[in-house]
């Protein structure tokens, strides 16, 4: 495959930005009540109008849902890039740190206690995710350094522990099992501006890694070589790990566990623009937003008026694509 944007990052970013705009327009236009482009333009320019049903559906239901899907896609993609390159492991996704399982445990507690909806379930999920990050972090600290492999092992272990506790809670709270399973599969159904506001908190964390693209490039050669070349490895690593953890916790808390976006998007983008982070990070951000936007569109339109959980859509699209990419990578 020929690579785009070998020297400058801008053509790649421009194309990915264009893709995101197309995805946004499609997602906003299509749905149980499809709009024309001129209607879309009309709604966007007039803003929310009280008392108008179509306007209310657009502004109160469709718009926040589409924005949330795109934000979460971007968050997971950026977290995926960071973790794959810090672990130097292509099979890493944002969930290996255990943050998602911690968030799931928090959300499950919220559901079992019937503190449904905003802010409680979401907040408990966020707290669960960040607390897990803290525990894993403490486990991986040795003599003032973060051991990345201990971190990986601790993350996986905490994941299993949290999943086991979720299972126990599911059996205990039998009548809530359906709600828990739906939450775990991930969905944007019924999410509104409250969730968007939480997801927007992650924006600075998406931007921050862009300032460390050079350090991240150098870290591809391993921590020791990065030290030799003058990178403050510990500081950079900590900052990036916290960033990825916060991004994951926020994404999972607003919509549950949506698989494959954080795993596959960085791989697709690496094939397109190469592993240099000056292109990889922003393009992954935009492609992740586009992909999850489209996946959510499919989830709510394919068998309308019913919905396929979006995690199922991303997995159906992501799994074959990933196997294809793996085979291709072997040959190349």
């Amino acid at each position: 495959m020929t690579r785009l944007a070998r020297t400058s990052a801008w053509p790649g970013i421009g194309l990915a930005g264009g893709l995101l705009v197309v995805c946004l327009v499609l997602s906003l236009v299509l749905g149980p009540a499809s709009l024309s482009l001129s209607q879309l333009w009309h709604f966007v320019t007039t803003g929310p109008v009280p008392g108008n049903l179509e306007n209310a559906i657009f502004w109160q239901i469709r718009m926040p849902r589409v924005l949330l899907a795109c934000l979460v896609g971007a968050e997971l993609a950026v977290a995926g890039v960071i973790l794959q390159d810090l672990f130097l492991n292509p099979l890493t996704d944002p969930y290996v740190t255990g943050v998602s399982s911690g968030a799931a445990l928090g959300a499950t507690i919220g559901i079992v206690l019937h503190w449904s909806g905003l802010p409680w379930t979401t907040m408990l999920a966020l707290v669960g995710g960040l607390a897990t990050l803290g525990i894993v972090w403490m486990a991986a600290r040795r003599r003032g350094r973060i051991d990345i492999f201990v971190l990986l092992l601790a993350g996986v272990t905490i994941s299993y522990l949290a999943s086991a506790m979720v299972t126990v809670l599911m059996i205990q709270g039998n009548q809530d099992m359906r709600a828990i399973v739906y939450w775990l599969m991930g969905s944007f159904s019924g999410r509104g501006w409250g969730e968007v506001q939480i997801a927007l908190v992650a924006v600075p964390f998406m931007i921050l890694p862009l300032f460390f693209s050079r350090e991240m490039d150098i870290l591809l050669q391993g921590e020791k070589r990065a030290l030799e070349l003058g990178v403050e490895v510990e500081r950079t690593k900590r900052l990036l790990l916290v960033t990825a953890g916060v991004l994951t916790a926020i994404a999972v808390s607003v919509c549950g566990i949506i698989g494959f976006v954080g795993l596959v998007v960085p791989h697709i983008v690496r094939l397109l623009v190469g592993p240099g982070h000056r292109s990889l990070l922003p393009v992954s951000l935009l492609v992740g937003a586009s992909l999850l936007g489209i996946a959510d569109l499919l989830s709510r339109t394919v068998i309308a008026p019913n919905e396929i959980p979006v995690g199922v859509v991303t997995t159906f699209v992501g799994a074959p694509l990933f196997v294809y990419l793996l085979r291709r990578g072997r040959k190349g």
Partner: peptide
């Protein structure tokens, strides 16, 4: 020296000027 990522030689050499 291990680098499994598909970088051009120029990009790899360039990293040396980080400091």
């Amino acid at each position: 020296f291990d680098l499994d990522f598909d970088l051009a030689v120029r990009e790899v050499v360039e990293m040396g000027s980080y400091c």
